[in-house]
């Protein structure tokens, strides 16, 4: 275990320094809940960190724990329970492809395979240039639009025929940073 991002049992946990802007976003979420229930904002805070940093590091978990008055392990439990949190860095564009039965009946599995083949990665893999990560996923709740994919957790794309997948890859490459 050389450069594990996991927060180990060191006496003093490493805490990420979060910007004022990030903390302001946290506080907008915290304000939704009773004063003694700040923990309710943990899922939103984790997704904010993921949006800004691309993944949830142990240091970021510690910073959220400190901000919400939670034990770091309680934050870790949330990160590891929910499918969409990235526990390791991913490509600049994370593409989740639904292959559940309703999507499978409308070529969801073929869409995943086509995307993997086009990018030269296996399911779960990231392209060598760090641009794309492809992951099979469970129901996105858009079954009538199948095949469907989720881009970076927040934008859904629909009716993804092979031709549209090819186009999507081009469009994303053009918007890469």
């Amino acid at each position: 275990m050389s450069s594990s991002p996991v927060n180990n049992t060191a006496a003093q946990p490493v805490v990420a320094k979060l910007s004022e802007a990030t903390l302001a976003r946290f506080d907008r979420e915290v304000a939704k809940y009773p004063a003694d229930q700040k923990q309710s904002a943990v899922m939103a805070c984790l997704s904010i960190v993921q949006q800004e940093q691309g993944w949830v590091s142990g240091e970021a978990e510690n910073a959220i724990a400190a901000h919400l008055g939670m034990a770091p392990i309680a934050v870790r439990e949330v990160t590891t329970f929910y499918n969409m949190y990235n526990q390791q860095p991913v490509g600049q564009f994370k593409l989740n492809v639904c292959t559940n039965l309703p999507c499978q009946l409308r070529n969801g599995q073929a869409a995943l395979e086509h995307l993997c083949q086009k990018l030269g990665v296996d399911n779960g893999g990231t392209t060598a240039d760090g641009l794309f990560t492809v992951q099979q996923c469970e129901c996105l709740g858009a079954c009538a639009d199948a095949p469907v994919m989720l881009v970076n957790d927040r934008q859904m794309v629909s009716y993804m025929s092979h031709a549209r997948i090819d186009e999507l890859v081009d469009v994303l490459k053009a918007q890469a940073k």
Partner: peptide, 27 residues
């Protein structure tokens, strides 16, 4: 009234798992 978002767990559609999740815990 406020909005809350999940982050990928089918089980949270079960009402008591949903409540746990809303409390900031595993669902």
């Amino acid at each position: 009234l406020h909005a809350f978002h999940g982050f990928g767990a089918y089980i949270c559609g079960e009402e008591t798992a949903l409540l746990e999740s809303l409390e900031g815990k595993k669902g």
